[in-house]
Structures are given as structure tokens and as C-alpha cells.
Design a protein around this nucleic acid. Sequence first.
DNA 1: GAGTGGTCTAGACCACACT
DNA 2: GTGTGGTCTAGACCACTCC
Lengths: 258, 258
Amino acid sequence: MAAALPPTSALDDAALDAAGPAFSPLYQQIKALITRSLQAGEWRPGEAIPSEMDLAARYKVSQGTVRKAIDELATENLVVRRQGKGTFVATHAEEQVQYRFLRLVPEPDQKPGPVERRFIDCKRLRAPAEVARLLDLKAGDPVIQVRRLLFFGGRPVVLDDLWLPGLLFKGLTAERLSDYRGPMYALFETEFGVRMIRAEEKVRAVAASTADAPLLGVTEGAPLLSVERRTLTYGDKPVELRRGLYDTSNHHYRNELN
Amino acid sequence: MAAALPPTSALDDAALDAAGPAFSPLYQQIKALITRSLQAGEWRPGEAIPSEMDLAARYKVSQGTVRKAIDELATENLVVRRQGKGTFVATHAEEQVQYRFLRLVPEPDQKPGPVERRFIDCKRLRAPAEVARLLDLKAGDPVIQVRRLLFFGGRPVVLDDLWLPGLLFKGLTAERLSDYRGPMYALFETEFGVRMIRAEEKVRAVAASTADAPLLGVTEGAPLLSVERRTLTYGDKPVELRRGLYDTSNHHYRNELN
DNA sequence: GAGTGGTCTAGACCACACT
DNA sequence: GTGTGGTCTAGACCACTCC
């Protein structure tokens, strides 16, 4: 580790004046360095990162220290370890489950039918104050709004409204969304270099509005699950806002508590 | 480790015929042994377990192996590590947050008022088929049903219905529930020796029924969040079934996706 | 067989809490 | 000071994948 400070090194007073503890374990520093390389695209999604021994040599630390750093990156789903092969940059493209963040599952008695998508709208507009605030933008900044339906077994179940920062997603059109095979987040990752890392969701029960009810094939006022998602990329920077309306007649939102 | 098999030890054919891989890392075996002691109550909730060095000596393995076992137990919230003090058996009694499993949070504009509880009912009955199935009981086995309301800032927000295996919770009465200060799971833990480890929840949007609406102070048909929880103890044994109805006018169900 | 991640060990030292 | 968990190291061997 040439650049990083050893844990016990003295710091000048100016550094100590800065906020936060002027100390972090070596493996945390290594983790931060690897994360920086991931963010900078030094290794592309799906590719292998250097082996633990290589990284240990690069950063001048022991393999065990690199291992602990990678362990944490793996539990945060930034990388995936595969014994005998290497450690790979996580991707939304080659995942076992289609939608990593979608917690909606069919009731046990339902047949898991095929999933279809229909993009209703994709337009550019100026960010309303609330959207701007949640995306860390200024009100009036360009944003892209996308509206789409998800069908399970031929029936509409999810109505999604998305807001994306216009600057990050230049050139996004309804056509590109429709043509792309695979999860939307995989397209964002490969075409726009925006990697969805984690998300926060707020779930509520709401009544179907006059406008939304026919799209989901429910009666006006029918109870729907409202799922507001704020999706973050590296450094907890928000890059997507999403409001989903779920018809939970034959599906439910599944969650595990630990 | 006297009893546990070394990772590479040969097994006779009968053992190989049994389902599952006939191998687990040493630290997993240690983890299982510690878990067994936790389950058996060798150390009570809130108490410290032996130090890593002591456990290493007891099981005849290195401290690092014990450490890895405890690390996993800590991430599963079975124990809590405190630097300089020791490792402690997790408990619902002395927690920073009142309700570890309750994901309901007030809207940002709401003042977080005091939480009050009101127990409406606590009766013994025979398990309906569905309840029995989910609790791994036989239909007709004795169960205890509890109904209660949670108030936030004086207003009813959560209506809970619980089903508990009658054999595990002998002597549970509405009075004991009302008199107890602290989370219900803490009472279960200290009075009945039943430790809630993790849970699965199914969330849906439903319309308020004629019977439930007045309890929550909403109009009939108003959209409510239905939260079905199945709570598990050691060995993933189900020990509680719970159906909550949440009024999400001023609160929401919060979730983090990774 | 070579290379990768996974496990296990033994020992050193650090940070923290109690006494 | 003593004891606890937390970090870091160096080396050995195992399990898996691919050539």
C-alpha cells in the first residue's frame, strides 16, 4: 500500500480537523480502492477482476487482507466469487432471476406464467421539485420519464413510472427499451454505464385512480400496492426514481426479516 | 474437535447414501455446535458467551476458526459482538429499536409520537387447517390467538392478529401481555423460552372490512397494507403466525434491497 | 498441472472496556 | 494491567475449473 495511510500513522492537524475518524482498517482502504476501480470501469460488468494474489501484490498487503475486502464487496453484491474461476464484476445481465430487485412473487396456487413488458411512454421533461430533490438534481433539470406495464401470464400486474436523470441517460427512447432483451437495468449498465447497486423502497396501500385502474384491469378504488423505489449507484448516488403500482390479487410482495 | 468429522474423512457407504453432501467446513461445524448451545439455553439471552479463546480451546480448533463461526452467527443476529467486552446472546429485550421486525416508519413530515398498545383479545382455540399447516401443527391442535392494536401518536395504525402454538405458550393471558413492559418478543423470550430469530413476510394491499375499519378509524373499503408474517426460531421452526393490517396514510413499510 | 477461491493455523499487534 | 474482540500477516493445504 503505497498511497494509503497505515492505520497508526500520524496525521497532521489539518487532517484531524476534517470530519470523521481519521482511521480505517487496511482492508477497508483496499475495499475503497477496489470499489473506485469498479466505478471507473477498470473491469467491465461480467468480467473477472484480478486474482487475490495479484491484488495483494498490487496493494502491497497480504492475501488475507484483500480477501476480507472482497468478502465485503461480495456480500454487497458488487462482485461475485466463483471458486476455481475467479471473482467477477456483478451484472444485471446474466442473473438467474430476471429482476433482482422485484420482490413480487405469485401466490403458491398460481402458475408462474411468462413475463411480458409493454412500454407505454418515454418522454423528456423538467424535473418537478420533489423528483429533483430525491434524485439530487435541481428543479427544472432534464429528466426522462418512462411508463410501462408488466404482465404475468398475460395479465397486467405492475404499472411502473420511472424518472431518470436526463444527463445520464441521453438517447434513451421507448424503442430502445422495447427492443432490448433482458432486464432494463442490464440495458442501463451496458448502454449508459449506470450500475444499479442497491435501492430503498417505501410500500403503501393505495386506491386505484380513475386513470390507472383500466391499465391494470381493476376497478377504480381497488386496493393496490404502491412501491416507491429510489435506486442508488456507487457512492449511494441516486440514479432512478420509480413508482410501481402492484395488483396483489394473485401476487404478493415478499420480504425476509433478519 | 473430537466429535466432528475432519473435512476429508472417509465415510461409509451408508452415510454417502444419505441425502446432502457429506462435508462441511470446520467453522460450519463449530457454528452448528455453538448454535446448539444457544438453543439449549447454555447461555441466556443478554449474557456473554465464552471468549473466542475459550471456545477455541473447548473445540480444539484455532481462534480464527471460532471467529469465522461467530462472524456468521453475528450476521444472522443470533449473537452480538462488543469489542473489549465479549460476544453476547442476542435478545429482543435490550434493543435500540423497540420492534426489531416492524418495518413501519412514519412519513418524514410526521412527528414520531409515542407508541401505545392495546390488547383486544387473547383466547385459546383449535388450529384451523391453514394455520396448522403454516405452524407445522396438526389441524385441531391448541393454538392461542391474540388480537391487538398499535397506536402511534394516539392514533390506531396497526391491527395485529397472532396465532401461537398452545403447547409452547401455556399460561399466556391478555393480562400478562398488557402488564409486560417492552416488546412482546422479549416476553416470549424470558417467560416462555421462545426466541424469534427471523421471519418471512407477505405484503398485499387489501380493502378494510366492515369489522376492521372502525378499529383503525378508517372507512370501510379503505386501502390497507396486509402483512402476513411467519416467524421462525432455531432450526427454522415456525412459532408464530401474524396478520397485520397497517393504515399507511401517514406511515409506510420500509425496505432495503441489496 | 496450473491457477483460482476456500479453509485452517499460529502468532503478532491494535483498539476498547473494566478494574 | 488484564482480557476481550478486531486487524494483519505468512504459510499450508483443500476444492474446483480449465487446459
